[in-house]
């Protein structure tokens, strides 16, 4: 069996990731409502270097969003908003594809990958991530 990324494998990875995300968010939502300071720190970069990584604060961002606080969600980390959209859309899309026996999400994913191989789009994306990272370090997440 080849281990290259085909439709079913991508969908399984996405579903596992989304499911893990739901559990993680539920865990944080249920146990760490006070200021989110005593949560479990899973970030390897932060534990090794003490500097937050570009996506640190995404959990706090999603939790703020759950409390209808969009401004705070954007402050913690804009990546949280992107993750929420992915976590909501992709399971629905996968179920849709599964019922219709299509591979529209897989085709979309491949197009998206090709899009990010364009050097200008990749450059903009890298710039945004770096800017977000610098902002994270300034905020001291």
């Amino acid at each position: 069996m080849s281990s290259t990324l085909n439709r079913n494998k991508l969908y399984i990875i996405l579903l596992i990731a989304c499911f893990a995300g739901y559990i993680w968010i539920y865990y944080n939502y249920a146990y760490n409502l006070d200021n989110f300071t005593n949560g479990v720190n899973t970030c390897i970069i932060k534990q090794v270097t003490g500097i937050p990584c570009p996506s640190c604060g995404a959990t706090r961002s999603i939790l703020s969003l759950l409390q209808n606080n969009l401004a705070e969600a954007l402050y913690w980390n804009p990546i949280g908003i992107i993750l929420v959209i992915i976590m909501i859309v992709s399971p629905v899309w996968i179920v849709f594809d599964y019922i219709q026996k299509k591979d529209s999400l897989y085709v979309f994913y491949r197009r998206f990958e090709i899009l990010f191989r364009n050097k200008y789009i990749a450059g903009i994306a890298i710039f945004l991530v770096l800017a977000n990272w610098i902002w994270n370090i300034q905020k001291g997440l």
């Binding site: 899973t42 390897i44 640190c56 993750l83 998206f112 991530v129």
Partner: peptide
Amino acid sequence: GDTGLGIGKLLTCGGLGVWAV
């Protein structure tokens, strides 16, 4: 060359550290 998975790892802090390991 797995750009999509790379973005996935980047956005989730290496899949909460699990995927990275």
